[in-house]
Design a protein around this nucleic acid. Structure first.
Lengths: 340, 340
DNA sequence: ACTGGCACTCAGCCACAGTGAGTGCCAATC
DNA sequence: GATTGGCACTCACTGTGGCTGAGTGCCAGT
């Protein structure tokens, strides 16, 4: 079947180009893969593939390289996610299970992902919005200063200091604390915010202004988007392997890596751990990253997705390998969060 | 005086080379600086400087570039810290004063420093060891789980969850809390650790195991070195300006930037904000960074130094400018910590 | 001590030819 | 009709050789 062979040729081109980083010619292709046909035949197929915009020639007398469209077809139809080696699986479990707190979990994940894929890895901290409130603590630091601490189910702790206009007693604070906890414990952020609105009304006129201030700080701490947006990046040294295209490729990428807001957008609305998002070259919604690709997915306890993680690399990257690593890390990470 | 002119020539070479990144010849030197002598004379001086190992020729028929030793002399004797422009000072104050918490302060400082120097900036989080304990809170999360929270004078909050073998009542926890707070409030970490050792003994036999566990968690949280070692890096996109020497210069640097432990060593035992440490090329205690320089200093409230910050760049960097920026940021940062 | 002059060196640039990997096309074959 | 071998063609890459000019070192003169 000619269609089948054309696709086999495309797959071979992608694989060889990813491996060697050099345009691949018809002769080399036939030698390295058992295509069972002559170079001339492959040349005809290549001409057809080029016609369809799946591959291109850097210059007339050179081999072919895949286009973004070619990679896209490869990812969608020609590759399956490469199973990880047992050694890799073992590395993931042992490394992630040694983590002591949330920061550590995220950091280990980033390093792991960077090592496995030899690309730049990005892990977003678990988002607050879907997590639940485990406990609220009010700490009197002085008679007019109260520290508000929120502990969330993901292990995240947020705090705010509230300056009060008048002195409050420890006893009053204890009352506020239990009232607040009754209202929010076990609730999701969104629900907790709603319930908190009613809390001041349950107090005497005299207490209300203070309680309102505390509640406001609490709401702010919970919905603080800066924490949602926290991101950890690792493996930037792998950029050194990019080799050529320095100014065009690496510089904008380094810039992007410091713009965490942008990274969040790039990781995008990735779905559950089962679903991988792959953006290739021009599909990446940011000019300057036209020759980079992103493989990302969501993760979180259960089948919910609390946050995203992924890798960024040159369009000529090992997609099956990257996809396997990203998925595996997301799965283990989800499991860890589930247990913690 | 011939010695004076020789030094003037060295200074001119350093300045021109830093500005143009190209070997500087005698003729260009005379044209761009008012040395009042002919190129031939400058050539003689250059020969002498080369003899002393302060400058070198990349190849026979090229201009001169400073050696590490040359930069060292320049930094020590020929340059004074460039005063910042009013605009720069204003930028520092406005940017830093908008910070809302410790993370934010550190992040803003890194960005600022990277922007001012156009190099890679590194800021270490304020160290715990010299800060004092402001408050300890024990939160019962369930009957057998207690969250230990320590709030330090620098604004840092550390927490640990302790799993207890038996259930404890809220009342007992309240007793423990006040005992612990009595012991440590206002103390420095080191002193607090000592005082805590006595706390379990003040309780009944029955309570001691539990209190010991809580105290142990507390001590661990306070002395946790991972937080001491926290570091923030920024401005890596500036690496793109390095231009040549990619594999030799940038790759090891990118690797080093992810090794926070190493970075801490490199920032070194910098002194007070008044004292700047400058390590040039081969003086940097890490192979692979032989063509990079580090300008660092300590910072912290008062004249104490809680942590370090600095910039890393190519040996051919603008030392007076970098030194000025590093010092200024350290000063403002210290002031902010003083007030917060 | 400084300067002008001069011979020398050599990286960088350009032009040129040779090489070879790779292509497209076509006629012959299965 | 698909496949193949053959062939002419293209063109990046490499190496060579000559030229240029910035820059040097040295020396004799002021």
């Amino acid at each position: 079947m000619i269609e089948d062979r054309k696709l086999a040729v495309l797959r071979a081109i992608v694989e060889d180009y990813v491996a060697t980083q050099e345009p691949v010619g018809s002769k080399a292709l036939v030698e390295r893969h058992q295509l069972g046909v002559s170079p001339a035949t492959v040349r005809n197929d290549m001409a057809a593939l080029e016609e369809e915009g799946l591959i291109a020639q850097p210059h007339t007398s050179a081999g072919r390289i895949p286009t973004d469209k070619g990679y896209r077809l490869f990812v969608d139809r020609l590759s399956q996610v490469k199973p990880l080696s047992p050694a890799e699986r073992r590395a993931i479990t042992t490394l992630l299970e040694g983590a002591v707190d949330l920061d550590d979990v995220v950091q280990r994940s980033v390093r792991l992902l960077a090592q496995l894929t030899r690309q730049v890895a990005i892990v977003q901290y678990p988002t607050l919005s879907r997590s639940t409130v485990r406990h609220v603590e009010l700490v009197t630091m002085s008679t007019t200063r109260v520290l508000v601490v929120v502990i969330l189910s993901t292990g995240r702790v947020e705090q705010r200091v509230v300056e009060l206009p008048d002195a409050v007693s420890d006893e009053s604070v204890a009352t506020y604390r239990s009232a607040v906890n009754r209202a929010v414990m076990g609730e999701r952020i969104a629900d907790a915010t709603e319930k908190l609105a009613d809390v001041p009304r349950s107090f005497e006129q005299h207490d209300r202004p203070v309680v309102s201030m505390l509640v406001a700080a609490l709401v702010e701490a919970m919905s603080d988007h800066r924490s949602d947006e926290r991101i950890m990046v690792g493996g930037t040294a792998n950029l050194a392997r990019f080799g050529d295209g320095f100014e065009v490729t690496i510089r904008p990428l380094l810039e992007a890596l410091e713009e965490h807001v942008l990274l969040l957008k790039l990781l995008g609305e990735a779905g559950s751990p089962a679903h991988l998002t792959v953006r290739i070259g021009s599909e990446v919604p940011h000019e300057g990253l036209a020759s980079t690709s992103i493989v990302a997915t969501g993760y979180g306890p259960g089948s919910e997705s609390l946050a995203n993680l992924g890798v960024v690399g040159p369009t000529r990257m090992d997609y099956p390998g990257a996809m396997a690593s990203v998925r595996a890390v997301a799965q283990y990470l989800s499991k860890i969060l589930d247990e913690g």
